[in-house]
């Protein structure tokens, strides 16, 4: 059975499911008329204005500190604080635009650091989605002895803070001889309780008929997962990938502990070291590295937004 067929079946299926679930709903009319923005009713218009005001205020709260970091990263080392003591609006625009901070960090090997972190982040992401989706699938679609116990164990794995297990985990890395290696950075992060939990929640929403139909067609369970379930839950795959990648991109203490050699240095460790020297800070380097540390994951994450955009014809899978 092809993916397209199953999706089609899902779409036809959903109306029935919904009618069944919302028992108080009268027969559903599949109207195609859509509410247009800025419609005629005055109440609607006021609501829209209110929403825009809210959006603008929130956008300012989000942007202000980011804008300041970015503006500071293009300011010379000598003047970066001049407009902040006390704070003046000029601090939000560099007076003398300079790339010195960026030249400085790349001279210190920040390019290599970004590649390192990308490699660690992307490898972990791929493995984590595979391991997490298979485990989530088992919990969502099967009944088996020991399920509850194993599920509680998954929750436990996500509840115990990493700081409480760092010494035994670090000892394991040492005894495996993994200090200063890629696997020390990647392997411990692959099995992620949050990702398993997330997949379980979304996989449970997929209508049983779809899976049954595929099984009747003779599809193996792995085929059901890869061919039907995962394509239907793209937003979840994307979300899982984003959280795993960001967790790796932002990790700091563990990389510093298990892979301190320069050839394995990752972004957050570099940000913390660059421009710090005893009691002195090179603020231009710090702001430039902080800016890049934010821009790179954004460049990866923002294009994935399309999976979140509410589409009118969306292949809904809620049942």
């Amino acid at each position: 059975m092809s993916t397209n067929q199953s999706r089609h079946q899902l779409q036809t299926r959903e109306t029935t499911v919904i009618t069944a679930d919302n028992t108080d709903t009268r027969p559903v009319a599949l109207s195609t008329t859509r509410h247009q923005p800025g419609a005629t009713r005055p109440g609607e218009r006021m609501l829209a204005t209110l929403l825009y005001v809210l959006l603008i205020v929130m956008a300012l709260i989000v942007l202000a500190p980011l804008e300041w970091i970015m503006a500071s990263s293009f300011t010379t080392r000598e003047t970066v604080w001049a407009n902040v003591l006390p704070f003046s609006w000029r601090a939000l625009l560099p007076e003398e635009f300079t790339l010195a901070g960026y030249r400085g960090i790349f001279a210190e090997g920040f390019g290599r650091v970004i590649l390192n972190t990308m490699f660690v982040g992307l490898t972990t992401t791929v493995l984590s989605v595979i391991v997490g989706s298979t485990a989530g699938f088992a919990f969502a679609r099967f009944d088996f002895p020991g399920k509850t116990v194993l599920w509680v164990l998954i929750l436990l794995s996500l509840m115990v803070p990493y700081e409480a297990t760092v010494i035994p985990a670090y000892t394991l890395v040492n005894n495996l001889g993994w200090t200063n290696s890629w696997q020390a950075l990647i392997v411990p992060a692959v099995a992620n309780g949050t990702v398993i939990f997330l997949f379980r929640q979304f996989f449970a929403e997929i209508p049983q008929d779809l899976i049954d139909a595929a099984r009747l067609d003779g599809a193996a369970w792995s085929r059901v997962l890869v061919g039907i379930v995962l394509p239907l839950t793209k937003p979840v795959v994307v979300t899982s990938a984003i959280i795993v990648f960001l967790a790796q991109w932002n990790s700091f203490f563990w990389p510093m502990l298990v892979a301190p050699a320069e050839e394995y240095r990752v972004v957050q460790v570099a940000v913390s070291i660059l421009g710090v020297q005893q009691e002195l800070r090179y603020w231009d380097l710090l702001f430039a590295s902080a800016t890049i540390a934010a821009v790179v994951p954004l460049a990866l994450v923002l294009p994935l937004q399309k999976y979140y955009v509410s589409s009118i014809t969306g292949s809904g899978l809620k049942g």
Binding site: V166, Y170, T171, N174, L257, P260, I273, V276
Partner: peptide
């Protein structure tokens, strides 16, 4: 291995504390 001032203490605690 360069780390920040504050991290020297944390790293020593964990690494030396676990017998590395």
């Amino acid at each position: 291995e360069l780390v920040t001032f504050r991290e020297v203490f944390q790293q020593n605690q964990v690494r030396l504390g676990s017998g590395a």
